[in-house]
Design a protein around this nucleic acid. Sequence first.
DNA 1: GTCTATATTCAGATAGAC
DNA 2: GTCTATCTGAATATAGAC
Lengths: 189, 189
Amino acid sequence: MNASPRRKELTRLAAQLFVQEGFDKTTVRMLAQEMGIKSGSLFHHFKDKQEILAAVIEEGTHNALRIARRALEYSPTDPEARLRTMARAHLETLFTDRNAHVVALFEWRRLDDEAKAHLSHLRDAYEALWVEVIDAALEAGLIHGDRFLVSRFVLGALNWTVRWYDPAGPRTPDDLADELVGMIIPAKR
Amino acid sequence: MNASPRRKELTRLAAQLFVQEGFDKTTVRMLAQEMGIKSGSLFHHFKDKQEILAAVIEEGTHNALRIARRALEYSPTDPEARLRTMARAHLETLFTDRNAHVVALFEWRRLDDEAKAHLSHLRDAYEALWVEVIDAALEAGLIHGDRFLVSRFVLGALNWTVRWYDPAGPRTPDDLADELVGMIIPAKR
DNA sequence: GTCTATATTCAGATAGAC
DNA sequence: GTCTATCTGAATATAGAC
């Protein structure tokens, strides 16, 4: 709702801490220190800690959706390229965009029911993009299986990279995306 | 270390709560209530809350390793069947064995450094099983890609099922495992 | 092995001055 | 918009009786 520049900046910093420490282990005092203010001042910007989480997750999902949509616009239209585009966009929001999408994926459970209800349509819109692209790949005979399961397996493989991938290592996120797509597509003809 | 039957039972109950609520959100009072004792009594069995987590994760990883090894013994020896066997075993420990493996995967970060050091060899042994089976599939030309990445993508896809799969639904864990293997293997010849 | 009682610490959140 | 000061509740853990 409210989106003052200050609040946006605070949300960005919160996302970083939530990824590093986890939502539960991040105290409002830690958040405040990172933001260069005292803990009491935080509650001028956010009603409570829950609202900070909701703000982060909203931004994270929103970014993922925006970046994926834009990437699809500029993508070649063949199903394989679009699959690659989506995978690249997904990892881009996880590793280079800035953390908020990671929080959206890994701390969703910590949202209260109200926030979940409010944000689930955003998440669903993003997943719908995926199902769309996967459907096209299925119809083209590029991959095979159940559309629902394939989407979830692919997203699972991508999401889990957060747990092991080191962006400082030799591979780029794009490398990972291409490898994953290569894995589920029959060998190059 | 210590493995009194009582402690084993408590560990089992703790695993269940850790999955339902998450480690951080599970209080020692909740644990005690579930176990039918008072919170103070818990510390007769475990030095502190950390030790409960370590016990759960040790059991979870140990179970996963044991079940996978045994499943491979009885598995046909062709690479595709062994891949399927590993995937089935993995989901079996996640959904039907009982929760401890889920905790091992999702709360690993919460272990202190000492526990991580003590348990990482167990985890590595389990992952080595996977790499072995995946290597065989690569050599047989059944799948293609980097052994390291393929293992991690497959495990990611499997692990993430915890977040969306409903065991009460129409599909069995074995169905999921077979679908995943089908997804990464070229269409039936 | 479990109980009661409690020490201790720390978290989220509020009030009112500046 | 930020500060200081503080309330309130809750969580981990301990001590000693039974």
